[in-house]
Amino acid sequence: MKEQKITTTYEVYPNLEALPAEARFLMQKAIAAREQAYAPYSKFKVGAAVALENGVIVIGSNQENAAYPTGLCAERVAVFSAGANHPGVTITQIAITAAASDYELSEPVTSCGACRQALLEYEHNQDSLIEIFFMGASGTVVKTKSVANLLPLNFNSSYL
């Protein structure tokens, strides 16, 4: 047996204002999308903004449903919309932000496993890395240069 270690690298910005202008603008779009979330059950709103190589920004917010499994996360709403409305256009960046109704969320919130897998599919298929920026309602912002950093030992279409 040989033990292996998986590591990842990410950047931490102290706040929204510390981001480069382009990333700050994208996160502001995600914040606006977060305010449009439909989250009456969890009271946990998430917004996402996807930047495409052609300059278009596509937004999404989480959409809950009384039949819980039928809701959809903000990341998948945004990326699926980008794929449906701008097929073949490379995704360059994604900004994601979350806020809770009953407490101050100042820590970055990452994507759930299902969203990581969906985002990885786009990154793998376009053969180009997607930068992701995460934040809570306020506070620090985390940036990773690739979806694969969030999902090591991943499954993708090359196995099919």
Rank of each mutant, 00 (worst) to 15 (best):
K5T: 13
C112E: 08
G55P: 09
V56C: 06
E22A: 15
H86I: 05
R34K: 14
E64Y: 00
A84M: 06
V50F: 07
F133M: 09
A67Y: 10
A66H: 14
Q4Y: 14
A49T: 06
H124N: 05
A78P: 02
E35S: 15
L72E: 01
S111E: 02
S157T: 01
V50R: 02
R76L: 14
T8E: 10
E22W: 02
T140H: 12
F25H: 07
A99L: 07
K5W: 11
A48P: 00
V58M: 03
A66T: 13
F44W: 12
G83Y: 03
E131A: 15
L52E: 04
S111V: 08
S128R: 15
P108F: 03
A66F: 04
N54C: 11
V89S: 09
S157G: 02
Y10S: 07
A84S: 09
N65Q: 03
V109D: 05
G113A: 13
Y38K: 11
S128T: 15
S138T: 15
Y68C: 04
Y103G: 02
Y38R: 14
A48K: 01
N154C: 05
P40R: 05
A82Q: 00
C73R: 00
E35R: 14
G139V: 11
E64H: 00
M27V: 10
A23I: 12
L72Q: 06
V12N: 10
F155C: 06
Q63Y: 01
L26I: 11
L153Y: 13
E107C: 06
S138N: 14
Q4R: 12
R116I: 08
S158C: 00
A98W: 00
I6R: 10
T8M: 11
F133E: 06
V12D: 07
G55E: 07
K43P: 04
N156Y: 07
V109K: 04
G55M: 06
V58Y: 01
S111M: 07
R76Y: 12
E53P: 04
Y103E: 06
Q126P: 05
V50I: 13
F80V: 05
I59H: 05
P69T: 01
E64S: 03
S81E: 11
G136P: 03
A74N: 02
L120A: 13
I57A: 04
N149D: 15
G136T: 01
A51E: 11
A18D: 14
P108E: 02
T140R: 14
R34T: 07
N54K: 06
M27R: 08
V58I: 12
G136E: 02
V77C: 05
G139F: 11
F155E: 10
I132E: 09
A78K: 02
Y13P: 04
A114N: 11
E75W: 03
G55D: 06
E17P: 04
P152C: 12
V12W: 04
L160V: 00
A39Y: 10
V147H: 03
E3D: 14
R116T: 10
H124A: 07
V77S: 00
S111R: 02
L105R: 13
V142D: 05
D127Q: 13
E17K: 08
E3A: 15
G83P: 03
G55H: 05
G136S: 01
T90N: 09
L150P: 01
N54S: 12
H86R: 04
A100K: 04
A148Y: 13
A95G: 07
A37F: 04
S111I: 06
R76T: 15
A32V: 05
T8N: 10
L120C: 14
